[in-house]
Amino acid sequence: MSSVVLSQLLLGLINGSFYALLSLGLALIFGLMKIVNFAHGALYMLGALLAWLMLEKLGLGYGWALLLSPLVIGGLSALVEIGLIRRLRHLDPLYGLLLTFGLALLIQALAVMKYGTSGQPYPVPKFLVGADNLGFMILPRYRMWVITASIVVCLAVWAVIEKTRLGSTLRAAAENPRLLEAFGVSVPRLVTATYAFGGALAAFAGVLAAPMQQVRPLMGVDIIIVVFAVVTVGGLGSIGGSIITGFALGIAEGFT
């Protein structure tokens, strides 16, 4: 009996890893910009798609994808922020929501047109192939890596936000941007960087997910609905809340 509990707990943690990574980015963006980034799922999908393209067209493996894909998607997000979202800053948040929602639909539709809905296979990287018998369950090595990577990244981001000077600047920008500007900090640049970082986190999660499922244009939309609930339950904009709720929901799902 206990082996069933343990194995479902672990499986829950794996799903929770993705919820946590995605809701973390969403919470960051929301905290600073007060924008609910509906394009987050699409960025997650693009991250995975880019990993597949790099492997297929350029022969760059998993490690490169883990590094480059977030960078590229982060850059793309920065462009979106500068070119589109920034222009809506003084309007009702509803406009930002509509814009990102529209972007998500657009990106997904383009991907479906180009790649179909069945998706592309992305192999598990060679050094993580195989599964270990933990006694109570057989756990694929790759999934173990996913849990580790996700927890490390989540903790690192949390530490940066809560414990460093950069983090306090970010929090100050969320609290009172005008006062912060008076201190000579460029808030718009901070906003762009935050949005780009949120996008990069989504892409990172996408690359992590690629070997576990097909790289499909619809993968983002399947997960993002849950993630929105996580962010809301975790207290909109709260970093720690999002991480904890993400993992907790994954575990709750495992048991039900």
């Binding site: 609910v36 539709a109 991907a111």
Partner: peptide, 16 residues
């Protein structure tokens, strides 16, 4: 909006 998305989900996502 998430609910709206969820209702859309099976049909393969708004996009298409």
């Amino acid at each position: 909006s998430a609910l709206a998305l969820a209702c859309n989900k099976d049909k393969g996502e708004g996009g298409g």
